[in-house]
């Protein structure tokens, strides 16, 4: 194990890794605060407000993936593939379920 004094190379990578968490933290904080503010103070008309906080949520998820989980274009191809494929499956399952159940509700209730 290297002693407390890091090698030159590690000082640079440390700075980059540390920055990643800090930027991610600040962005996540801002996106969260913005979303709560929009709802608690009833900014924007109803429908637009829901769209806005949905976009903020998606943005924050991307921030988490990029800055906390370090998933980026430099990632191993297998890992990227898996995230993208999972997103497809989630879209099909969640979208399909909501479509079906709302269609049923409309026709039956």
């Amino acid at each position: 194990m290297k002693g407390d004094a890091m090698t030159h190379k590690h000082v640079e990578t440390y700075a980059r890794d540390f920055r990643s968490y800090c930027i991610g933290g600040v962005l996540a904080l801002a996106l969260t605060a913005l979303a709560f503010w929009l709802v608690m103070f009833e900014i924007l008309p109803d429908f637009e407000r829901l769209i806005a906080i949905s976009i903020l949520a998606v943005a924050q998820i991307i921030v988490h993936f990029r800055f906390f989980l370090h998933i980026s274009w430099y990632s191993h191809r297998d890992d990227l593939q898996l995230v993208l494929f999972t997103s497809l499956i989630l879209f099909l399952m969640v979208g399909g379920t909501i479509w079906i159940l709302f269609n049923l509700h409309e026709r039956m209730m």
């Binding site: 969260t32 979303a35 109803d46 906080i53 998820i61």
Partner: peptide, 17 residues
């Protein structure tokens, strides 16, 4: 934490909004 982002958005904020 990612799942929680979805919970506070799509459960709490959506619910109140």
């Amino acid at each position: 934490d990612i799942v929680w982002v979805c919970i506070f958005t799509f459960v709490y904020l959506f619910g109140v909004a």
